[in-house]
């Protein structure tokens, strides 16, 4: 493999990770506000299918994207409404929605299977894309990939360096305290769930109109991505930068699976495709194990030096969820 091929491959990793970045950051916003939207996997499928169907019917990429975003917001608002207004379990509703939207996508997408449709074109950035190596690696994408770069920084800035971001974190951690100080907790939860849903919805057309253009029903290869995004939200510790890092790691692993395939003829390609999932469990294990009682007990029994090192390593990996995640809040 030449170095040029490797650079093209790595650029491909950034390109294919864009929809995962959207979904992960969308879910990060939603969960930061205290709402779990478990419907991501089905939502991505339904928004991918709807965007493709709308884009094919209207010959317009723009309306395709609008459709995908609207689907994402609609599903997310169903979760928010059933939790905030109807006090139903977010996990239950999100789970039903993830299965139902998947079947809806397969059912309604049936007539559009295998059709030729429009796709987003590349926008090489003038001058910058001509820089050797870096130009190919960073400045020769379609607008969605650029947007994914901007989104990572913007989301991080919003959550950690602005006043609305502070309020966002507050309603996910201590909603009662935030409410007393004047934050309209439930209104903001609707807002951030809709925003998160819109970003998850954006992942759909990013697949069906760009990264994996077209709609191929059950073999579209999108089933499972949403679960990865949900796991990356945890892996990222509800931090957009760390979550995006996870998305790139995932895309890199998938690419390596493809590249290494010819060297491992005994392993069927389906096995390599699912390889990132066991890694997902392992990473979740690493980031969560520090929270368990028995680890805390074991640490307390270690000699001081070993304890300091073990604690430092665990701290570095450990993530702690927003403390009001998944709960409802009565504004009274």
């Amino acid at each position: 493999m030449s170095s040029h091929e490797i650079i093209i491959g790595l650029a491909g990793v950034l390109f294919t990770a864009a929809p995962i970045v959207f979904a992960t950051i969308g879910e990060t916003f939603t969960e930061r506000a205290g709402v779990i939207n478990l419907s991501v996997n089905g939502t991505i499928l339904l928004s991918a299918m709807s965007s493709f169907a709308v884009a094919v019917s209207t010959h317009s990429i723009f309306w395709g994207f609008v459709a995908g975003i609207v689907v994402g917001m609609g599903v997310a608002l169903t979760v928010a409404f059933s939790s905030i207004a109807l006090k139903q379990s977010q996990v239950a509703v999100g789970f039903v929605l993830t299965l139902m939207t998947r079947d809806l996508a397969y059912f309604l997408g049936n007539p559009y299977m295998g059709l030729q449709g429009p796709r987003v074109h590349n926008w090489p950035i003038p001058v910058l894309s001509k820089i050797p190596v870096l130009g190919t690696l960073l400045f020769n994408f379609d607008p969605l990939t650029y947007f994914s770069f901007i989104l990572i920084i913007a989301a991080w800035w919003w959550i950690f360096h602005t006043r609305p971001g502070l309020i966002l974190r507050a309603i996910g951690e201590r909603p009662a305290a935030a409410y007393v100080r004047g934050a309209p907790v439930n209104k903001l939860r609707y807002l951030y769930t809709a925003l998160g849903g819109a970003l998850v919805g954006l992942a759909g057309p990013t697949y069906s109109l760009s990264v994996k253009a077209g709609w191929k029903g059950t073999i579209s290869g999108l089933d499972g991505i949403g679960w990865i995004a949900l796991a990356l939200t945890i892996f990222g510790g509800w931090d957009p930068v760390r979550g995006a890092f996870g998305a790139y790691l995932f895309a890199l692993l998938q690419w390596l699976g493809l590249v290494l395939q010819p060297y491992m003829p005994n392993i069927p390609s389906q096995v390599l495709q699912v390889a990132p999932f066991p890694l997902m469990i392992l990473t979740l294990l690493f980031v969560n194990i520090g929270n368990t009682e028995w680890v805390k007990r074991t640490l307390a029994g270690l000699p001081p030096d070993a304890r300091r090192w073990a604690t430092r390593i665990l701290r570095w990996m450990q993530v702690v969820p927003p403390s009001a995640l998944g709960t409802t809040f009565e504004e009274e």
Binding site: V91, A231, V271, V274
Partner: peptide
């Protein structure tokens, strides 16, 4: 219980591993 991994994600990951295992057996 011992790893602090939410059972939804642990179970889901194991689902995918099971699929890989069954495909490997059938094709291998």
């Amino acid at each position: 219980v011992y790893g602090g991994v939410n059972e939804i994600f642990g179970g889901l990951g194991l689902d995918f591993v099971a699929v890989a295992l069954i495909l490997w057996l059938i094709f291998g």
